[in-house]
């Protein structure tokens, strides 16, 4: 009997080791699409941020925490991910609030237009990076498309095992993990591709933002109230028909903000004041800002955070300052390398 128990334990260990090694090998490394690595990078910097940014690509390509620190001494993190849906933002916030006590939470409202789960690939980019918690389970349950299953998230090898026949050199190279791609959640884009079209967004059949989005916005607001953080709604600057921000949507957000006593800042009409030049400050014809545009926007918003929202300047705290200096240096090193 003893022999059988030892044999069973050995067999279980053998299976576990083989499966874990395969898991590391087949998990997407997101080398070509580094957005998939953003959510997971947060944990190395969790715990002492006064401003948390949440939202989709419009957030992680628009706000530079290194600049916020350097210019205003604001400790912040951008927890953005590709096509981050509002329920994902909510659960990410819930997870972060376990360790953080921010002064302000900044939420980009573009994803309010989505009322239902969209795409497995984007879900994975947001959810796989989260550590296991009740928030992750909640985020998965809220995000899954019809073909997805919770079991596949618990054991990602069940989903990604098919990659075994499509492995590339990167899968072996980054077997134990790829280097950090972001600077406190900011994903740098250095290219310049000016805006060339003046086309506006196509007409929509229905301009009403889904009610479920407002339900999650309520939940975010309540969570912030509970934790004593100010929820600031923003719409990052974009200028492309594909990412069009309709006046009808803007009005609904404004009304909601007014009714809820929140601030809503739409940066699109403020672009000129911020100094954004769409021939220089975008890397994809006006859909997103490049690093030059992001630095301008961050500077502008940093001033607001500092003056209007009284987010403290913490450059005097030596330990924090030292940690941030390393991040700032890394940011400029990356900026110089990628130029």
């Amino acid at each position: 009997m003893k022999k059988k128990i030892i044999a069973a334990v050995c067999a279980v260990l053998l299976a576990a080791v083989l499966l874990f090694a395969t898991h590391l090998l087949v998990m997407p490394k997101y080398i070509e699409n580094p957005e998939g690595r953003l959510v997971g990078e947060y944990y190395s910097q969790a715990g002492d941020n006064d401003v948390l940014f949440l939202g989709d690509c419009e957030v992680y390509e628009s706000f530079v925490p290194a600049v916020l620190w350097e210019k205003y001494g604001i400790s912040s993190y951008v927890r953005g991910s590709s096509q981050q849906l509002i329920w994902q933002s909510y659960y990410l916030l819930e997870e972060m609030m376990e360790k953080e006590t921010p002064k302000a939470v900044v939420f980009n409202v573009y994803a309010m237009k989505y009322g239902e789960p969209q795409n497995e690939a984007y879900n994975r980019m947001t959810l796989d990076g989260m550590k296991w918690s009740s928030s992750k389970v909640g985020a998965i349950n809220a995000s899954m498309t019809e073909d997805e299953s919770l079991v596949d998230y618990v054991f990602p090898i069940l989903r990604f095992h098919s990659r075994i026949s499509q492995l590339t050199a990167d899968d072996f190279k980054y077997f134990l993990g790829a280097p950090e791609v972001s600077d406190s959640g900011y994903l740098m884009q250095t290219a310049v591709r000016p805006m060339t079209t003046t086309r506006t967004g196509d007409d929509l059949f229905d301009y009403n933002l889904p009610s479920v989005s407002f339900e999650y916005l309520d939940k975010m607001r309540e969570l912030c109230e509970k934790k004593g953080a100010e929820l600031i709604l923003i719409k990052a600057p974009t200028n492309h028909w594909k990412f069009w921000w309709y006046d009808e949507w803007d009005k609904q957000i404004s009304d909601y903000a007014d009714e809820s006593g929140l601030d809503y800042i739409n940066f699109i009409p403020l672009c000129e004041e911020i100094g954004i030049d769409w021939s220089q400050d975008t890397y994809d014809e006006g859909m997103h800002l490049n690093v030059s545009g992001a630095e301008k926007l961050t500077d502008y918003f940093g001033k607001m955070l500092s003056e209007k929202y009284a987010v403290p300047d913490r450059r005097g705290e030596s330990e924090l300052s030292s940690a941030w200096q390393t991040r700032v240096d890394k940011y400029y090193e990356r900026k110089n390398t990628e130029k």
């Binding site: 067999a11 073909d147 090898i157 098919s162």
Partner: peptide, 23 residues
């Protein structure tokens, strides 16, 4: 038992890794 349990474990691992199932 060592051989039979290990072979069983290997078959399970092979199914999980090489099986054509899921998305």
């Amino acid at each position: 038992p060592f051989l039979s349990y290990s072979l069983f474990a290997l078959v399970i691992v092979a199914i999980i890794i090489f099986g054509a199932y899921g998305a």
